[in-house]
Design a protein around this nucleic acid. Structure first.
Lengths: 136, 136
DNA sequence: TATTGTTATACTCTATAACTATA
DNA sequence: TATAGTTATAGAGTATAACAATA
């Protein structure tokens, strides 16, 4: 019986472990590299929108942003239009740390996928992108 | 930049959540459906071998097997050849519960991958199998 | 009433260290 | 000395409930 779930579970555990190791020197974790690219691409975002995009619970986004804010990589500001919202942006340092960390992480990820050819890695990425794009 | 890790993380979280929901009625969790098929295919296994195959820490396999043993789905016996080892097997009830649960889980997994065609799901499975087959 | 951010909390997953019994 | 299983424990990931501020 074809059980993609078991393989996904194993591969994502390896990815996480490899990512943690690779990012350790940069003082970041894979989870940080989920949120930061979104902020860079959008320019800014509310915490709720960010949680929706990452499909993380908003309560966990609070802690994630606390860590990034403590490191000076993001900043929160109260939105003038809707004072319930925090507008979150990358700082300049956040942008720089992200650029370096992304290369480090991408290299580590490719290493985990060393069993695949470059073309197969591309196909895998496309299939994952298509699968996750679906509502659920 | 191509970041398979982020997509893998998201998809495996969805898989886990869908699997938990689907297996709830059977009183099992996705993690149980990792170990049980290995035991069925091998007939029996020591805990250390099982941990190696699943790439789980042996300390976590202890708890996993405790749950399955409490439910009467596996049995541990002291190995006569090496009295340090526990020989683990599926019970008859374990075999039956597994057969039913596998269909339930496979259906739930296909639902998570609904954004892909059947052929794409097969390709994804093959790529995941090849990627995880590599040492690391 | 509903939403945004927050805190407190609980449960799962994973890894490390240390113990025991065997080899 | 080393290995198999176990226990205790700590850290990360995730979700739920409840609250204050704001809409």
């Amino acid at each position: 019986m074809r059980r993609s779930g078991a393989l996904l579970d194993l591969l994502s555990r390896r990815m996480r472990a490899a990512g943690e190791t690779a990012l350790q020197a940069a003082g970041l974790r894979p989870r940080h590299l989920l949120a930061m690219p979104v902020l860079r691409d959008r320019g800014e975002s509310s915490q709720a929108d960010l949680a929706g995009t990452l499909q993380l619970d908003r309560t966990n986004v609070v802690g994630l942003l606390n860590e990034l804010e403590r490191e000076g990589l993001i900043e929160r500001r109260r939105s003038p239009e809707d004072r319930r919202r925090h507008t979150v942006r990358l700082t300049e340092e956040g942008r720089e740390r992200l650029a370096r960390a992304e290369f480090t992480l991408a290299a580590a990820e490719d290493l985990v996928l060393a069993g695949l050819t470059a073309k197969q890695r591309d196909t895998l990425y496309e299939l994952l992108a298509k699968a996750t794009a679906a509502a659920c």
